[in-house]
Design a protein around this nucleic acid. Sequence first.
DNA 1: TGACCAGGTTTCCCTCGGGAAACCAACGAA
DNA 2: TTCGTTGGTTTCCCGAGGGAAACCTGGTCA
Lengths: 122, 122
Amino acid sequence: MTPAYDVFDDRCPTRMVLDRLADKWALLVLDRLKGGPVRFNHLRRDIRGLSQKVLSQTLKRLERDGLVKRTVHPTVPVSVDYALTPLGQTLTETVAAFAHWAELNMDAVLAAQAAYDTASVG
Amino acid sequence: MTPAYDVFDDRCPTRMVLDRLADKWALLVLDRLKGGPVRFNHLRRDIRGLSQKVLSQTLKRLERDGLVKRTVHPTVPVSVDYALTPLGQTLTETVAAFAHWAELNMDAVLAAQAAYDTASVG
DNA sequence: TGACCAGGTTTCCCTCGGGAAACCAACGAA
DNA sequence: TTCGTTGGTTTCCCGAGGGAAACCTGGTCA
């Protein structure tokens, strides 16, 4: 069968999905959620540099896309947690692979940058 | 051994790498290069919606990070092709997984969006 | 009544991304 | 000499992204 969608076509809806996923904050949130539900302020504290507003927007988009489930617990004060949906879980390995790649190959990238910059200057 | 880098720390250089990789255009370029070297204008034509300026910038960054190798062939007129470096090739599976995920799960995402929007309206 | 918690939303404001289109360099062909 | 090729760079300009910080909404406690 021929593929129904083509990510190289700018009129293809997969571009929209790629746009959403190709987002630093969304990736970090998804990666942080892979161990189980996490509460709003906990996410905010764990992902350094992520502002309240952007976290809120990111979570809303991920929820709309069916990747994350928002659950309100009627405690006092109210607590809200976010968890991966089954669909979202199908992404965990890929997302984790990304984060891990960055951590594992950081040295190589830094070395390449240094070499590139030296070559340009000299 | 403890991990030297932590992607959740905003002062960690991996954040820089994640920023670069969490870019729609960079992902599409890397995915397009996985089959072998491709020339500038060929990339531009294949990746619909990618402007000359942005492609140029994207390639330069990827080259600086050591993921892509730029080769100039002294033909007439000059031709330039771009290929994945060995480091870049370690990313191909992950990048392809992303693109494929988008293509495979597009329907589920669209359905989730429709459901979300209906719930919000009603 | 006022203070404090979680979990947001809104406002202000400024930077950066990126599209369009012109320009440029080198070279060969007509 | 003008045109066409490839592979860019530069300029202009606008709109989205996102940081900071104030505000809001329950609800409970003191």
